[in-house]
Amino acid sequence: MTTQISRRTTPRINVWDLLARFREVGIIVFILLLGAVVTLRAPSFLTVNNFRDILMNISILAIVALGQTIVILTKGIDLSVSSMIGLVAMMVGFVMRQYPETPIFLIVLLGMALGTIAGSFNSIIITFGKVPPIIATLGTLSVYRGLVFFYSGGTWVNSFELPQSIKMLSKGRLFGVPNLILIALFISIIVYLFLKFTRTGRNIYAVGSNVEAAEYAGIRPQRIIFLVYLISGLLSGIGAVLWVSRFESAQTNTALGFELQTVTAAVIGGVSISGGVGTVTGVVLGAILLGIIQNALTLVRISPFWQLAAQGLLILIAVVLDKVIYTRVARN
């Protein structure tokens, strides 16, 4: 047996294998190629300021997409993130307008708490109610958005009504780097450590990879699934506070349609919709790639109206390439 098995597993390393194993490499290569092409057409692409802009633009996306990723790892999906952001943003906005003196850390905590509660509602429906995640969160997508309208009576919180403290949360700088980027980086690192170095994190992968086997192995899948929607809500809550801070307003249509962007970032970043596969680095790179594309299209003066089409095309290319690479690997 020994001889036979060791013979079968002689590693055969080739380009396709590498690309499949290190999905991130593929995205980086793509980013570099794209960057080179854009720089030729528009040299202003390769400036510190421009990169700061790009990162500012995708910071919130990256944070929420990480929550989405954790959910997708368990074969689920959370379509309600955009409405959770909208709801939490509105509630936080109302509190800030009414009590402008509230210390900023309390506001952040409030956002986290509200997001977690919204997320826990998803968790309950999905784990105890046995409603398929896509349906449950499709439902709460409308429910939370409806609550935004009900809550605000259709009104907005405008920039002049918000205190300086919340605005500085994202715009303040540390060593010349905007806080928003640092916060996103910090959260990415936390999520990375969580997924890679805690048992719970590893159990998330296990549940997404094979639920029954996870149960045999003594993991309680329902708990894990409960947890992931909670985390998605938590990160959406943080995203909501940052959203208010960055755009200096809370509107009834805050983050409308954002849910599909988060799924897009995750999918481009190599997260498999069928669960169990995906890394934090990949997703962050996926979000950055999305940001760069948007930025590059503006710089090379492609009509803003065509930008959405280009984004869509990019998703299609990314998933098709991914498939081609995997088929190649499987054939080898």
């Binding site: 048992r199 590893r202 159990n203 296990a206 990879s209 086997a213 192995a217 003594g218 169990g276």
Partner: peptide, 23 residues
């Protein structure tokens, strides 16, 4: 127990498969 239906995690590597749930 080793069950009739194999209960491995296809997306995890061999070493982690052995220790899943008790890393």
């Amino acid at each position: 127990a080793i069950y009739q239906e194999l209960s491995l995690f296809p997306d995890l590597d061999v070493a982690e498969n052995i220790f899943v749930g008790r890393h």
